[in-house]
Design a protein around this nucleic acid. Structure first.
Lengths: 158, 158
DNA sequence: GACAAGTATCTCGTTCGGCGAGATACTACC
DNA sequence: GGTAGTATCTCGCCGAACGAGATACTTGTC
């Protein structure tokens, strides 16, 4: 792992940021008696809500890489804690859509809000060309990381 | 969670990158019969090696947020798989330093190399001012994420 | 140099998230 | 209306990580 120029410093920095963000949400989990997976689930649910699409139990499990048994246990856990509601779909009554409770959103916001606020503040300090560089780099890395085959999961084969 | 301007798009993008990088290393773990924690451990060990400092079992566990029992189990696992060696410290014979095996480094490089290469390539496409913006943003986010108290861990209190 | 206090790691027994297999409930095709 | 397909749940099990405490070594202090 020899240094291939000054670019490597930035690569390590990005990795460090990813680790630090992971640790930050692990802290949120621990403080609220949750598990990392539960936090990932809430984030996935809120993302779906923001995109205006309903999240079913199955899609949630697939997004997190859980099989159906694990997904049921996850939703049970979140529901028991009051972070989430199960709602039977009216059209297709096999489906269960999972909705985030408002209080869970507020709770998340109280923890992640300051960090998000700081990030926005930082971004305001850059001009459009600089922000475009940040956006371009992150987009490129996301694509490169997502590129290689996302393994099929067990059980519940789609 | 109302959109507070175009900066939010970049914040979500950064989060997406963190998720994608996590998924990428989870894939590496799964393909090699390892657990996410094992990968985190190898990364921590390689970081320490790169910084030229020895990593003891205790420091490794602390870095990963494991207690002593979990740390022992982790090192057992990695040693059994041949990724790591236990070496008794000569000066303080209570200590066990953990060294990464060369083959584990090569294995990691074969999986993360292409992604790292792509990131370096992307970065070469920006001028110094743009790279400074990327560096500044990432550094700021890392500091903000690490800012709030890193909870003390159970057992093995330091 | 022996004794206490401190530190690093390991052992033992337990908890609980996630898995595989398969049951159940509903939909869709013919 | 029966058969195939799909979404979720139940059951039994495995193993990563925990708490408590044992063990081994070091560093004072007298």
């Amino acid at each position: 792992m020899s240094d291939q120029g000054p670019e490597m410093e930035l690569v390590h920095l990005l990795r460090a940021v990813a680790v630090e963000l992971g640790a930050h949400s692990a802290r949120f989990a621990q403080r609220n008696g949750m598990h990392p997976t539960d936090v990932r689930a809430l984030i996935a649910l809120m993302d779906a809500a923001r995109a205006g699409e309903a999240m079913t139990a199955g899609r949630l499990g697939a997004a997190l890489g859980l099989n159906s048994a694990g997904t049921t246990a996850l939703v049970d856990r979140l529901e028991r804690a009051g972070h989430v509601r199960r709602v039977r779909d009216g059209r297709d009554r096999r489906r269960v859509t999972v909705e985030v409770d408002e209080r869970a959103v507020a709770l998340g916001w109280s923890h992640f809000g300051p960090l998000i606020g700081r990030a926005v503040e930082l971004l305001r300090g850059y001009d459009e060309r600089e922000r475009a560089a940040i956006r371009g780099f992150l987009t490129g890395v996301r694509e490169a990381a997502g590129a290689d085959g996302s393994e099929p999961r067990h059980n519940d084969p789609r």
